[in-house]
Amino acid sequence: MSIATQDTDVNTGKIARTFIYLVLLVFALFYLLPFFVMVVNSLKPLDEITGGNMMALPDKWTIQPWLSAWSSAQIGVEPTGLKPYFVNSILMVVPAVAISTFLGALNGYVLTKWRFKGDTILFGLLLFSCFIPFQIVLIPMATILGKIGLAGSIPGLVLVHVVYGVGFTTLYYRNYYAAFPTELVRAAMMDGAGFFRIFWRIMLPVSGPITVVSVIWQFTNVWNDFLFGASFGGQSQPMTVALNNLVQSSTGVKEYNVHFAGAILAALPTLLVYIVAGRYFVRGLMAGSVKG
């Protein structure tokens, strides 16, 4: 469903229009303000925050808080900055997104073009698994990851994110492939093309848009996850967990400017994706909720 179609055709008066613009701008301010405060205060020395106005621009601009958040701030007990955790997040996100998207594409292909008895029930089970509260799997997951030696490791987190992400990616590809003419697949079968040949030659080449949607959705979810990272991260904690440790640390002076810089660093990858491919981001959100 695309947003950029026509407006609803309603006529409004001049006063009403002024009022509408006013409301819209006030809300824009509401959404922008917290982020503005973060950015501005991440560029101030600490005494300007504790002794000054959070809305004011810095008197003395500095990028010191950013450098500190990146490479020297105290995270837990180690003064490593967020850098190693950023790397952890990347190492976790890339395989998790790639594997779950690939599986989702194959599943969606099977569930639409090679249907069999009971496939709707399987899909329903898969779909419901996207929405479970993850508290219900935390205890057995901790036990199993320990038993197979993946506790506290990046591969363990990748496994977790693939398992709980594949439902959504399957949903995307299933809805997308459902609109693809099955006659074309049938024709290719008549010509002797097999299961994988049809997938590589016919389905994949038209899957560009939905792949972007799926990759963005998974990337955002996995990058922003906190619960699994905190529960199973161990020595390989992702960025969100490190940021929380940085902000909640109770020792020493609270370096608000460093916290803000850290928060923006943690948000940067997903924000960049949003800015570059916002259209697809919205489409992904929709496909997960409204009938695609």
């Binding site: 947003i3 819209l24 809300f27 824009a28 959404y31 922008l32 303000l33 917290p34 982020f35 405060v37 973060m38 205060n41 925050i49 504790t50 959070m54 955002t220 990058w223 922003n224 996850d225 906190f226 969100t240 940021l243 929380n244 902000v247 608000y256 916290h259 803000f260 928060a263 923006i264 943690a266 948000a267 997903t270 924000l271 994706v273 949003y274 800015i275 916002g278 981001f281 919205v282 959100l285």
Partner: peptide, 30 residues
């Protein structure tokens, strides 16, 4: 306007929480 209204959805709850924690803190915030 649309992207401005929507961008918070791209952030993690941890980032949102950090931003609002200080924004609402009586000592340095609003």
């Amino acid at each position: 306007l649309r992207p401005i209204y929507l961008y918070p959805m791209a952030l993690s709850f941890i980032v949102t929480g950090t931003a609002w924690k200080w924004f609402l803190d009586p000592g340095i915030g609003l």
